[in-house]
Amino acid sequence: MSQFDSKIGKVAVLMGGASAEREVSLMSGQGVLQALRSRGIDAHAFDPSLRDLGELRKEGFERCFIALHGRHGEDGTVQGALELLGIPYTGSGVMASSVAMDKVMTKRVWSAEGLPTPKYVWLAPDQQERVRVRTVPDELGLPLIVKPPREGSSIGVTKVMGYSQMQDAVQLSARYDPDVLCEEFIEGEEVTCPVLGEGASAHALPVIRILAPEGAYDYQNKYFTDDVKYQCPSGLPEAEEREIQRIVLASYRSLGCRGWGRADLMIRASDRKPFLLEMNTSPGMTSHSLVPMSARAAGISYEELCVRVLLSASLDHRLLPGAPA
């Protein structure tokens, strides 16, 4: 019997799903599944796009490791279903997942908290006609970034260099999300920083520097090539690394995240100021993924990381002692 059996019980690793990131989720999920099994945990694959979530309770699952990415995976919907089923799950709760999945809402929270994030223009479906779209570069400058606010893995993202590209960029983004986010482009270095834990006990892991060919840190380069180079330890000055970790922790706590997450940032070349881009509440766990890389630099193996995240599984509404059942 494993040392974890009595404490953890039967575990479902939720993977696949129906989002545009299904392929990546399957890779993440298989990695997590093998890691948990290697530690003697009774873990099983479960694809919510192929099976009803209600089967989790019928089959006696006691915890879920969410290795889903994108919609219906990290946007609060699966989290809400698991709350109703009463099955503890990894990562952030319903509200934090929902807000963090929407980059516009995330930026609103961060701006209200005084945290640095690039300027942006939100184009609702009725604001995407050519006349309006052509004015966006006047507000944000060029180049700028156009992306769907509720997708991940750089899907549907365009770096716009001139006015003539705007309409095509908006149309591409709108294929993935009715709303479109246009964002000031920050010239500089891209970094990412994971977080483990909750509330006051949450702590940032080492920062990773991302060196992509010609700055093309896109879906293909993220998952299917070895062209992107990563530096961890980052090699940044110690004060810079500490400041990034401070901002990331503040951004994580401001959204109410728990369990684990990973913030992506840009460091502006002109003044070395960091800007928050997004918070991932169900980060990738593939062979190319960044949380395992950062954890390794902190002396945490992939298997140990998976177990730590699983042990943090919880519910938003844990029954308080003495409360009526």
Score class of each variant (00 low, 15 high):
Ser49Trp: 01
Glu83Leu: 03
Pro178Val: 04
Met161Ile: 00
Asp264Val: 01
Ser282Lys: 13
Val78Gly: 05
Thr281Gly: 07
Tyr176Lys: 02
Val146Ala: 03
Phe275Ala: 07
His288Ser: 13
Gly322Glu: 10
Phe46Tyr: 14
Pro148Ile: 12
Lys107Ser: 15
Ala298Ser: 13
Ala263Ile: 15
Leu68Ile: 11
Leu85Thr: 02
Leu290Arg: 05
Gly256Leu: 13
Leu196Cys: 09
Val195Gly: 07
Gly284Met: 06
Glu238His: 03
Cys232Lys: 03
Leu123Phe: 10
Leu255Tyr: 08
Tyr219Asn: 08
Tyr163Cys: 07
Glu278Ser: 04
Ser301His: 02
Leu205Glu: 12
Ala18Asp: 15
Asp218Leu: 04
Ile41Glu: 07
Ala295Lys: 01
His44Tyr: 15
Ala325Asn: 06
Leu277Gln: 05
Pro194Gln: 13
His69Gln: 12
Leu311Ala: 13
Ala212Trp: 04
Gln127Trp: 04
Val136Asn: 03
Glu23Gln: 13
Glu83Arg: 09
Phe224Trp: 15
Asp271Phe: 03
Pro233Tyr: 08
Gln231Phe: 06
Asp218Gly: 03
Gly114Tyr: 10
Leu85Gln: 04
Asp271Arg: 08
Leu205Asn: 10
Pro283Arg: 14
Leu277Thr: 07
Val180Glu: 05
Ile210Val: 15
Met105Ala: 15
Glu304Ala: 12
Glu190Gly: 01
Gly60Ala: 12
Ser97Pro: 00
Phe46Gly: 02
Cys182Trp: 03
Leu14Asn: 11
Leu290Asp: 08
Ser289Gln: 11
Met105His: 10
Asp47Lys: 06
Gln231Trp: 00
Lys7Val: 14
Leu315Val: 04
Lys273Ser: 14
Tyr252Met: 12
Pro125Gly: 09
Gly16Ala: 00
Gln171Gly: 00
Glu238Tyr: 00
Ile208Trp: 01
Val11Met: 10
Ala169Trp: 12
Ile145His: 00
Leu290Ala: 08
Glu139Phe: 07
Lys58Ala: 15
Glu240Tyr: 00
Ser289Met: 12
Ile186Trp: 03
Gly199Thr: 04
Met285Phe: 15
Ser28Pro: 11
Phe61Gln: 09
Pro324Gln: 04
Gln127Gly: 02
Arg39Phe: 01
Arg39Leu: 14
Glu187Val: 10
Met293Ala: 13
Gly9Thr: 11
Val24Met: 08
Ser173Asn: 03
Arg242Ser: 14
His317Gly: 01
Val195Trp: 10
Val307Gly: 06
Trp122Gln: 12
Met279Asn: 02
Arg272Gln: 14
Thr77Lys: 15
Ala18Lys: 15
Phe224Asn: 13
Arg272Asn: 11
Thr117Lys: 02
Val24Tyr: 08
Val131Phe: 09
Glu240Ala: 14
Met293Gln: 15
Glu184Tyr: 01
Leu36Asp: 02
Leu310Glu: 04
Asp264Gly: 06
His203Ser: 12
Ile208Pro: 01
Leu36Thr: 06
Pro321Gln: 05
Gly261Pro: 14
Ala12Gln: 11
Gly162Glu: 15
Ser301Cys: 02
Pro178Cys: 02
Gln34Ser: 13
Ser19Thr: 08
Phe46Pro: 02
His69Asp: 05
Met95Tyr: 13
Gly17Asn: 12
Gly215Val: 01
Met166Lys: 03
Ser28Cys: 11
Pro233Met: 09
Asp226Gly: 15
Cys306His: 05
